[in-house]
Design a protein around this nucleic acid. Structure first.
Length: 859
RNA sequence: GGGGGAGUGGCGGAAUCGGUAGACGCAUCGGCCUUAAAAGCCGAAGUCCGCAAGGACGUCCGGGUUCGAGUCCCGGCUCCCCUACCA
C-alpha cells in the first residue's frame, strides 16, 4: 500500500466515517449520553438562502472560521451546538416558478441538496441531524405559531399603507425592485398605492432594541448601524391652528421646539391627508399636479440630494401657537413638498429656514422669509448663515437668553400649558411591513369572518399549509396567487361561522427570525422547542455572518426574541451574545485601457500581469467582488478536487484575519498544500511501508534538538490559542509552519508526544489529514474528541536572548545576553558590542529596556 | 453630506505595552539531488550606492511628541463598506 499523501482518498474515507459514526451529533439535555458537567457553547453561522448557482469560495470562509472555533471548543470539553440549515422561502425560487411553472418547493429542494453536498465536502462539523429548512411545514408550523403570539399581543395588525404597485406586472413590488419609478424587471411604470397589509409593531420595542445593545458583544459598527436605523429622536409635537374654517389643527413634530419663533412656513408631505383640503381654489390644480408627480417618483429620486428641492404653495395659512394671532409673523404659509416624508413624524413640519439646512435651501429657492432665532454662543446671529448648532435663543419672546437646551424645555412647557404641544419621542424605525402578495412564503394563520373580523386560528390547526396552485404569478386584478386556491380559502371561525383564509404570505425574513431556537430542538412535534432544552443552550455564544445583515435580519430577530422573552418562552433578552462579521472574499478582475472589465477566463496571467487572450493587450489588475458578470467566480468543488479540502480550509484561514476583506489568489493555494505535504512526510515515510515513522510509535527520546522543537511547538500552540481572540488564524497557522520547517530539519528529534500535540493543534484547520495521522499514531477515537493540548510555559522562554544595541535610536549591534541579567550587566554588554562606534563620543544618556534593547544617546 | 474600516516589499499578510519593520506563505533567484527535468531539500532576497566591509533611505503625504513612532497627537490624500432630505 502506498504511503503517499492522498487527500482525496483520506478525506472521502473520514467524511464517510464521521457520517456513519454520527461523530458530530450533539446530545441534548434528556438524552442518555448528555453530559451536564460540560459547559455549553453555541456557535452558529448565518444560514444560507440556497440559490441555484451553488456556493463559490467566498461563501464558506465564515463557515470554516466558525467550524474551527467549534472544533476547538469541543476539544476543550464543551458541549458544542453547531448546526446548519436553509433559509428556503423567497423570491428567486418564486420567480423561477413563475417562469417555468415548476413548483418552487421542488426547485428549492434541489438547491438545498447541492448546498448540503457542497457543505459536507468542506468537512464542517455540523450536527446534520438538526438540519432544517424554513419552507418545511414542520418548521413553518411554528413560525405561524409564533405569529399567533404576536397577534394575541396586538403586535400584528392590518393597515392601509402605501406600497409600490406595477400595473403591467399586476403585482406589488418591494422598494428594491423599483428603480426610478419603474420595475426592475421589464422596466414598467410603477406607482404607490394604498393597500391593506400586515404590519408588525416593532416600534413598540424600539427603546429596548436600542438599550439592550449595551449588553451584547457586537462590533461597534453594527451597534451604531442599528441605533441609527432605529433613529430615536426627542422633541415635541406642536399643533398649529389653521385659518381654514372648522379644520382640525395641523400637528408637526420637531426636535427644535426652541426655534418655533423662527418658523416662517410649514410643509406637508404630498401624501398628507390634509393636502386636498388646504389647497385653495387658485392653487388646486398646481397642488394636484404636484401630488400626482410625487406619487410616481421613486424613493431614490425623492431623496436625491443632488437635486434641488421642489414644492408648491397650498394657498392656506396656519398660526404659530406661541405668537399673538393678530401679529403678521404668526401667520405662516403652508406648502407641499416631497422633501417631507409622510412616513416620519406626522408627515408635516414647521420649517425654520434660519436653522435647518433643508428648510433654508427651500426658502431660498422660493423666496420665503428667513429669520434668526438662535445666536451662536457669545456671538451675533448672522443672517447670511444657516446656523444649525446649539447657542442662545434670540428674537423668541420669553425664550430669549436661554441656551438651546433650556429653550427646548421651556418651549415644551409653554406649549403644554397652552394645550397646543407636548413632548414626543419619534423613531426613524417604522412598523414592519410583514406581508407580500406572493406564493412562496408562510401563509398567515388567520381567517377573515364575514363581518370583517380577523381571527387567528387555534394552535391545533397549525400548520396552515400552502395549497397547490397551478399558476404562481399574481392574478390580473392584483390579488395574490393564493386567492386562486378557492377550496383552500374556505374556512370557519372557532365558533363555526364561515370565513376565508388570508391570501398573503409572510416575507422572507420571517423564518430566519427564530431558526437559531429551533436548532436547539429541531424535531419537537409539540412545541417550537422544549423549555428546558432552551434554558440549557441559552443564547447563541458566537454568531458568524456577513455585515449585509447588520440591520434587518439582526433587528427583526432581536424583536421576535424579545416578544418570546415577554411570553416567557426564552430565558435570555438577547438572541446573539457575540457577533462576528467575516470579511468579504474578493477576486482579481482585469480592466483594459478603456476601463472595461475583461472576464477572467479571457485573461492570460503571467508574471508581468494580465494580458488579453484575444488581443494581447496588457490589462490592469483590479480587486473586486466575485460576480458572475465578471466571470471571476471560483468554485470550491474545483479547488477541492485539485488540492483537497484540508488545503482549501487551510488556505481560507491562512489568507489573513477573518474580518478583513481579501482577494482569492489561485497562485497562493499550492503553498498550503505544500505545507500539508510536509506535515505528512514528517509523520510518514512515503518510501517505506509502515503507517508512521518508527520513532513516533516509541517512547519519547530526549536531547537538545528535541527540546528546541519543544519550544517551537509550545510557541505554536500558544499562538494558535491567541489567534482565537481576534480571529487571525493566519498567525497561528504561520507558527505551525515554522514548527514544521524546524522539525523537517531535524526529523529524528521529532517525538511521538510532539506528533500527537501537533496533530491536535492542526486538527481544527485540517481535520481530515490530522484524523488520519492521529489514528495512525494509535488514536482510537476521532481526533475531534481528543483533548486540546496544553501550553507549557517553561518552553516559551529562552535562557538567552538577543539584546538590541542602538546609538541614537539606530540599530548598531546585537549581543546575546542571559535572561534575567540586571540593567548594569546589560549596559556593559551593550557598551562592549559597540565599543568602536562609541569611541570619542560623549554618551549623554543610556536607555536600558530589559528583554529588548539598550540605546546610547550621544551628542 | 454622515458613520465605520483600511493604506507596510513584486503579491497576501506579520510586528502583544511606543523598542531589531517585513514573521509565515506566494512569486523570483542560486545551490544540492538528477543523464535531464519535475518534485523534494538547502539557501538568498525591502530600495538605492558600493567589488566588499559598510552606508543612506524606507510602513500613503506633511508636521509634532519621544532616547526611540508602522504604532501616539495635529493637518491632508486615496481606497473599501454601510447610510443617506428622518424635521
Amino acid at each position: 500500500m502506498s504511503q503517499v499523501y492522498d487527500p482525496r482518498e483520506i478525506e472521502k474515507r473520514w467524511q464517510a466515517k464521521w457520517h456513519e459514526d454520527r461523530t458530530f451529533r450533539t446530545p441534548n439535555p434528556g438524552d442518555s449520553d448528555f453530559d451536564p458537567d460540560r459547559p455549553k457553547y453555541y456557535v452558529l453561522d448565518m444560514f444560507p438562502y440556497p440559490s441555484g448557482a451553488g456556493l463559490h469560495v467566498g461563501h464558506p470562509i465564515g463557515y470554516i472560521g466558525s467550524d474551527v472555533v467549534a472544533r476547538r471548543a469541543r476539544m476543550q470539553g464543551h458541549n458544542v451546538l453547531h448546526p446548519m440549515g436553509f433559509d428556503a422561502f423567497g423570491l428567486p425560487a418564486e420567480q423561477y416558478a413563475i417562469e417555468t411553472g415548476v413548483h418552487p418547493g421542488e426547485f428549492t429542494r434541489a438547491n438545498i441538496d447541492t448546498y448540503r453536498r457542497q457543505l459536507q465536502m468542506l468537512g464542517l462539523s455540523y450536527d446534520w441531524d438538526r438540519e432544517l429548512a424554513t419552507c418545511d411545514p414542520e418548521y413553518y408550523r411554528w413560525t405561524q405559531w409564533i405569529f399567533t403570539r404576536l397577534f394575541d399581543r396586538g403586535l400584528a395588525y392590518q393597515a392601509e399603507v402605501p406600497v409600490w404597485w406595477c400595473e403591467a406586472l399586476k403585482t406589488v413590488l418591494a422598494n428594491e425592485e423599483v428603480i426610478n419609478g419603474r420595475s426592475e424587471r421589464g422596466d414598467h411604470p410603477c406607482e404607490r398605492r394604498m393597500l391593506k397589509q400586515w404590519m408588525l409593531r416593532i416600534t413598540a420595542y424600539a427603546d429596548r432594541l436600542i438599550d439592550d445593545l449595551d449588553h451584547v458583544d457586537w462590533p461597534d459598527s453594527v451597534k451604531t448601524m442599528q441605533r441609527e436605523w432605529i433613529g430615536r429622536s426627542e422633541g415635541a409635537e406642536v399643533d398649529f391652528r389653521l385659518e381654514l374654517e372648522g379644520a382640525e389643527p395641523l400637528t408637526v413634530f420637531t426636535t427644535r421646539p426652541d426655534t418655533l419663533h423662527g418658523a416662517t412656513f410649514m410643509v406637508l408631505a404630498p401624501e398628507h391627508p390634509m393636502v386636498a383640503a388646504l389647497a385653495t381654489e387658485d392653487q388646486r390644480s398646481a397642488v394636484q399636479e404636484y401630488v400626482r408627480q410625487a406619487q410616481v417618483k421613486s424613493d431614490l429620486e425623492r431623496t436625491d440630494l443632488a437635486k434641488s428641492k421642489t414644492g408648491v404653495f397650498t394657498g392656506s395659512y396656519a398660526l404659530n401657537p406661541l405668537l399673538d394671532p393678530s401679529s403678521p409673523e404668526a401667520r405662516v404659509p403652508i406648502w407641499v413638498a416631497d422633501y417631507v416624508l409622510m412616513g416620519y413624524g406626522t408627515g408635516a413640519i414647521m420649517a425654520v429656514p434660519g436653522h435647518d439646512e433643508r428648510d433654508h435651501e427651500f426658502a431660498t429657492q422660493y423666496g420665503i422669509s428667513i429669520s434668526q432665532v438662535v445666536a451662536p454662543e457669545g456671538g451675533e446671529p448672522d443672517p447670511e448663515v444657516c446656523f444649525t448648532g446649539s447657542g442662545v435663543a434670540v428674537n423668541s419672546g420669553e425664550l430669549d437668553g436661554l441656551s438651546t437646551e433650556d429653550a427646548k424645555a421651556r418651549a415644551i412647557e409653554l406649549l403644554s400649558e397652552l394645550g397646543t404641544g407636548r413632548p414626543k419621542v419619534t423613531y426613524r424605525l417604522r412598523d414592519w411591513l410583514f406581508s407580500r402578495q406572493r406564493y412562496w412564503g408562510e401563509p398567515f394563520p388567520v381567517v377573515h369572518a364575514e363581518d370583517g373580523a380577523v381571527h387567528r386560528v387555534s394552535d391545533d390547526e397549525l400548520p396552515i399549509q400552502l395549497p397547490d396552485v397551478d399558476d404562481y404569478a399574481p392574478a390580473a386584478d392584483g390579488s395574490a396567487p393564493l386567492a386562486r386556491a378557492t377550496e383552500w380559502l374556505k374556512a370557519s371561525t372557532a365558533d363555526g361561522a364561515p370565513a376565508t383564509r388570508d391570501t398573503d404570505t409572510m416575507p422572507g425574513w420571517a423564518g430566519s427570525c427564530w431558526y437559531y431556537l429551533r436548532f436547539m430542538d429541531p424535531h419537537n412535534a409539540t412545541a417550537p422547542f422544549d423549555e428546558e432544552v432552551q434554558r440549557y443552550w441559552g443564547n447563541v455564544d458566537l454568531y458568524v455572518g456577513g455585515v449585509e445583515h447588520a440591520v434587518l435580519h439582526l433587528l427583526y430577530s432581536r424583536f421576535w426574541h424579545k416578544v418570546l422573552y415577554d411570553e416567557g418562552l426564552v430565558s435570555t433578552p438577547e438572541p446573539f451574545q457575540k457577533l462576528f462579521n467575516q470579511g468579504m472574499l474578493t477576486a482579481f478582475a482585469y480592466k483594459d485601457s478603456t476601463g472595461r472589465l475583461i472576464p477572467t477566463d479571457q485573461v492570460d496571467v503571467s508574471e508581468e500581469g494580465g494580458k488579453s487572450k484575444e488581443t494581447g493587450e496588457p490589462l490592469d489588475q483590479v480587486i473586486s467582488k466575485m460576480s458572475k458578470s465578471l466571470r471571476n467566480v471560483v468554485n470550491p468543488d474545483e479547488v477541492i478536487e485539485e488540492y483537497g479540502c484540508d488545503t482549501f480550509r487551510l488556505y481560507e484561514m491562512f489568507m489573513g484575519p477573518l474580518s478583513d476583506s481579501k482577494p482569492w489568489n489561485p497562485r497562493d493555494v499550492p503553498g498550503c498544500r505544500r505545507f500539508l505535504d510536509r506535515v505528512w512526510r514528517l509523520f510518514v515515510d512515503e518510501a517505506g511501508d509502515s503507517s508512521v515513522r518508527g520513532q513516533l510509535l516509541e517512547e519519547d527520546c530526549e536531547g537538545e534538538a528535541t527540546e528546541a522543537l519543544e519550544r517551537h511547538l509550545n510557541r505554536a500552540i500558544k499562538r494558535i490559542n491567541d489567534s482565537f481572540g481576534p480571529f487571525n488564524f493566519n498567525t497561528g497557522i504561520a507558527s505551525l509552519m515554522t514548527f514544521v520547517n524546524e522539525a523537517t530539519k531535524a526529523p529524528e528529534a521529532f517525538t511521538r508526544s510532539q506528533a500527537q500535540r501537533f496533530a491536535l493543534a492542526l486538527s481544527p484547520f485540517a481535520p481530515h489529514i490530522t484524523e488520519e495521522l492521529w489514528s495512525r499514531l494509535g488514536g482510537e477515537e476521532s481526533v475531534s474528541k481528543a483533548t486540546w493540548p496544553e501550553v507549557d510555559d517553561r518552553f516559551l522562554q529562552d535562557a538567552e536572548y538577543e539584546l538590541v544595541v542602538q546609538i541614537r535610536g539606530k540599530l548598531r549591534g546585537k549581543v546575546m545576553v542571559p535572561k534575567g541579567a540586571d540593567k548594569g550587566a546589560l549596559e556593559a554588554a551593550a557598551r562592549e558590542a559597540v565599543e568602536e562606534l562609541l569611541a570619542g563620543q560623549e554618551v549623554v544618556k543610556v536607555v536600558v529596556v530589559p528583554e529588548r534593547l539598550v540605546n546610547f544617546v550621544v551628542k
